[in-house]
Amino acid sequence: MLTSSTYPDPDTLAAAVTERERPALAKALNLLDDKRPEARRRAARLLRLLPHERLYASGHLIGLTGPPGAGKSSLTAALITIWRKRGLRVAVLAVDPSSPISGGALLGDRLRMFSGQIDNEVFIRSLACRGEFGGLSAEVWPMSLVMLAAFDIVLVETVGVGQKEIDVSRLTDTTVFVAQPASGDSIQFLKAGIMEVPHLLVVNKADLGLAARKTLAELRATLKPALHESSWQVPALAASAAQGTGIAELADGIDAHRLWLLEQKQLSPRRKKFQAEWVLKRLGEEFGRFGIESLGGTSALLMELAEAGSSPFEQYDAMRQRFLSNWNAPQRERLKCP
């Protein structure tokens, strides 16, 4: 019988994940989700043992976001079909909201992601966003890393309009925004600068005709002046997941951005930067702004973390340790002499 105290051995697990074994990946994801201290220690070791190069310097980590029902999951299914034809292995993390009342969640994206054929080179894990409202759950970053160790492409689907999808763009190499025809929201958000500019925009449901063409035209007009932060020219595309049109172009556009990142030597630095931000966010949640200040402040910490080169859990634990020893030492003393 499995008991609550059985934890997988991280060394065996890391070796098997590196060999791209599916059951091992499933177990590794469970371990990364596990909040118990012993699980955390093993998860940290697991991440350390995975090939550093796959996690931080190769593969493609893609974020797909957009309003509810825009067709993100359907597009994912269509993209998977193309990627598979190109011989790429694909993992997906599908994030859905949790119920604020019960904490439970309905995870339904898989329904639309199934392309009709059982394929062991495709792996889909659903994840609830668990209280991090308007954001991604904390598990997404470490889970993406372990998926990168075993798959060529890792796609993260999240719901979001406006401010909300910013999170995913602070996490992935390439952010794709899926717009819903005839819904002006995304354009308004872009114009108002509320929404961070994604790397690609795609108007899905092009089969609806006029409404889709109109939305595309408006997006293009809005985008003209809005180059991405870094001189990457943001394309706005049309696609229909239902009819399979525009999907190859979308896949090409997504890959063009990856190549651009590599050429600019940005892929790896970005991932390290995002990891540093992830660690910082967790530290901030635990110790507040004061905690971050006492550790040296945001920018210094980000720089230090981005260069550290260890796994997110180790970085987090090291910082936590540093904070506690800074802070606890004098406090303990005080407690001793009332």
Partner: peptide, 23 residues
């Protein structure tokens, strides 16, 4: 609970694969 539900008419093979991936 966090609940994965994919609708009707799946093969046992599809269901078992989903159970594995979803942990």
């Amino acid at each position: 609970f966090e609940v994965v539900y994919e609708g009707i008419r799946l093969t046992p093979e599809q269901i078992v694969k989903a159970a594995e991936e979803e942990g």
